[in-house]
Structures are given as C-alpha cells and as structure tokens.
Design a binder for these strands. Sequence first.
DNA 1: ACCATATGGAACTAAACTAGTCCTACTTAG
DNA 2: CTAAGTAGGACTAGTTTAGTTCCATATGGT
Lengths: 164, 164
Amino acid sequence: MLRISKLTDYATVILARLAAEPERRFTAAQIAAETHLAAPTVSKLLKQLHRQGLVASTRGSAGGYLLSRPATDITAAQILDALDGPVALTECAGAASHCGIERTCRVGHSWQRVNFAIRCSLQEISLLELAGLSTAPNRNSALDRGISVVLSGIGTRSFKREPA
Amino acid sequence: MLRISKLTDYATVILARLAAEPERRFTAAQIAAETHLAAPTVSKLLKQLHRQGLVASTRGSAGGYLLSRPATDITAAQILDALDGPVALTECAGAASHCGIERTCRVGHSWQRVNFAIRCSLQEISLLELAGLSTAPNRNSALDRGISVVLSGIGTRSFKREPA
DNA sequence: ACCATATGGAACTAAACTAGTCCTACTTAG
DNA sequence: CTAAGTAGGACTAGTTTAGTTCCATATGGT
C-alpha cells in the first residue's frame, strides 16, 4: 500500500493552512475550525510539529502557532519525518538490521535503494508546492523541473536538472 | 514512515528465490526452507502471488511454483500491488475521495502527484534488479540509467533517459 | 494579584490493521 | 486409491494508529 498515516495527512492540511497566511498567528482552535479537523487532534499535531521545529509557538493568552520558516524551506520529507519518523520501507532498512535471513536475503539492500530514491524525491518537494500555493507553473520549482533520481549505487545519487 | 508491510518484504524474498532459478519448480516447503521463512506464511504468500498472476502453479503431487514470466517483466510496482493493493498515499487518493474536508483541502491533490511519481518509479524497477541478479551495472537498466519523474501536471509525466 | 486563555506533555482507550496459524477442499502423479 | 501438493477461507493474537482527556505551565489583560 505504501501509505502515509492519516495524522501525517492532517498535519499537511494544517501546515498548508498556516502557509496560506504566514504572518498570522493561529490558535489550535482556529485551525481546527478552519480545516474542519477535530480540535484535540489538531492540538496534538501542532505540539508534535512544534517539537520537530516545523512550527513556532507562543504560549499564554494571546498565544498560537505559525510556521517556523518560509513554506519554501519546509519539505515533504521533513513533514513525514516529523510525524512518522524517518522513512523506512522495510525493517532492515533501519540502523540495526538483523532480520534473521540476512544471509540469503539480497533483497533488503534493493529496497533500501528504492527507499533512498523516494526520500530524495520527497526532499525536493516544498510545503508551498504541497499546499498548492506555488505561483503558477514555475521552471525553477523542483516539481516542475522534474526530479531525477539515480537508483543505482547508494552513494551516487544525482539530481539531474532539465537542460532548461 | 512510508513503509511496506512485512509480508510484501517476504514476498520479494520469495520471488527473488524463484527468479534465481527460473526453470526450477519449487514447492512451498522448499522455498520456506531455503529462505528461512515460516512455512504457512510462505504458502499463504505464494497463493496470493498466484492469484495476482505473478507466479504460475501446478497442483497435485509433483506440483509447485515458478515465476509466471521472466523476472525482467515483473516490476516492484506489481509486487506491491499484488500484496497491499494499489499504492495510495492518502485515503482520498483512492477512487471515491470524500474525506469531508475536500473543499478546504488542496493537499490531497498534491499527495496524489507524489504518489503517482513514486508509482512510476516503482514500475521501472524489475524483479531482476530487486533480487540483485541483474548482470553487473548495466546502462540499459532502469536502475542504472536513472529515473526521471516529472511531478508537475498529473498527465505529463515523462521518463527521461540519460543521454547515454 | 488574579483570572481567562493559550500551549506543553503525558497517559489512556478504542478501533483498525498486520501477521501468523489452522482447517478443509481440490488436484495430480504414481 | 493414496501420498503429496496447491486453493481458499476462517480465525486469533499482537501491534499500531487514532483519538481523547487530564493536568501542568506560560502569558496578557483587568
């Protein structure tokens, strides 16, 4: 299935809302109302996004949240990492890889390569684009330029750019 | 996290084993023994892979499994589809997309684009490569050629190939 | 100083999904 | 006709995800 969790999806919606008005300070309740998500959930997500440094918060009576940096500097990969931890397609893609069949299994390595390629792609996508806010098709945008990921040797990825 | 299920991982191991000896007919028990996976699990997976047309089976006393077609014609995308159903990052990426916040949510559309891009990449990776059987780095292989996925308009993907 | 209004953090519950096993029916070679 | 195999489904246990609630902490206004 290769899916992202619902919460990550919600988080994107929240971040997109914040990105639409970067100057404005939102309370959790406001965001919940405007996105039609459940208030406790929104609150929980904002806390986590804050912990991961994606949003800045002010406490107290006039408190609230806003993006910690411009939407162009927040990537899809960062959002996924913030909520679900680092992308890992298979178990043995993690640090301590002992799945018992290691010896006979040459497959893990391959999935890791795929994994890595996907991750690189996600790093090229900014919140601005994710939120549909990027100002029209733009030749300088990663989304519109085309992303080239070399899947061969793990170390030898390269982001090819269109000749313009 | 963006992970694939353990079962899909196992299935890849199984398919890789079959791919290593394409002529040989394996029984489920043999595969279990040689891959060190639990026999009932292997059996279950092979059935499912058969249902999805990735392996051919013969019943009866001298029965067993083998790949239904050359390993080069089986893609990572097909393996994922066979076990987890079609890749869908978010819920609304599916056919009937009614998540309740549709109106305010411009995000779903973006995830679908990412989704689509990943899917295209996975279609370029063959079982042969996944199994680590592809004969040395090969300029004609999708893995070594580099995969370029244009994420912009949904309809306008294009697989750029290295100039050689 | 006090209070209303926020966020911060953790613990808890319920629901969904995954993994794994088992049992029965069907098929074929000897 | 029997042994050896696949086909399919039902079932159970475990883990993960989603969602809620409670209490502590911080801040601004009266």
